[in-house]
């Protein structure tokens, strides 16, 4: 475990837990894409299948449980909670996310580290995570208002991805034959998706103006 990876996991944890706590506190999910949250819940469900069969460390197990619990709680709040569900922007959150789930599944069947159910599901979760943010970014562009709830969420998620890339670079140079093309390529694609959001986020922050994404 290196510092980049620990910082990346903590940033990822903060992004999900802060989103859950904010939705729980203000009883609103305005600006949050349910599609992205559902995709993330699917990512964790597909990736952590080995939760009870393959013990890596206490940290690993605890974090997996926290990620599963928080991502499914957010989906529950947005779909079932009588107050929160009314604040969900249904007509704008229209990204057809099955258009990205299926290609990711096909890709996982074609490109994986080993053709076993768990490995294919693991690759599927890696590919899906790379594009899971798309419905949220589309929603932000459509509604054009980025209140701090979603802005911070996307910002922390982007920061977690950047830290993970630094983690891979560190591990590549410190661990012999540490090569994971699947995670690396998907991770770089995912981080690039955040790049333009980061650009506009930092500009708006510097000019102290409301964050506007180009149409």
């Amino acid at each position: 475990m290196n510092l980049f990876r620990l910082a990346g996991d903590m940033t990822h944890l903060v992004s999900v837990v802060v989103l859950l706590l904010k939705i729980h506190t203000i009883k609103s999910c305005a600006g949050v894409s349910l599609k992205t949250q559902e995709l993330y819940a699917l990512v964790f469900a597909a990736r952590y299948l080995d939760l009870f069969v393959h013990f890596v460390s206490l940290y690993n197990t605890v974090m997996k449980l926290v990620f599963l619990a928080s991502s499914f709680s957010i989906v529950w709040y947005m779909r079932k909670h009588k107050i929160v569900r009314r604040t969900y922007d249904r007509e704008h959150d229209t990204f057809r996310h099955h258009f990205i789930v299926l290609p990711c599944l096909v890709l996982a069947l074609l490109i994986n580290e080993r053709f076993t159910f768990r490995e294919v599901m693991w690759a599927f979760s890696i590919y899906l995570e790379a594009v899971a943010i798309l419905p949220q970014l589309v929603l932000l562009q459509r509604t054009r208002n980025i209140d701090n709830l979603t802005g911070q969420y996307v910002f922390f998620l982007g920061a977690y991805r950047v830290l993970y890339i630094l983690n891979w670079i560190y591990r590549y140079f410190t661990e012999p034959h540490f090569v994971h093309w699947i995670s690396w390529i998907a991770g770089i694609v995912q981080t690039v998706l955040y790049a333009d959001f980061f650009y506009y986020y930092i500009i708006s922050w510097k000019n102290n103006v409301k964050l506007e994404l180009p149409a």
């Binding site: 996991d9 080995d50 393959h54 890596v56 997996k64 990620f67 993970y164 034959h177 995670s183």
Partner: peptide, 10 residues
């Protein structure tokens, strides 16, 4: 090889 396949990252 089995080590490489053990996904130790979240």
């Amino acid at each position: 090889k089995s080590e490489a396949l053990e996904h130790d990252e979240l």
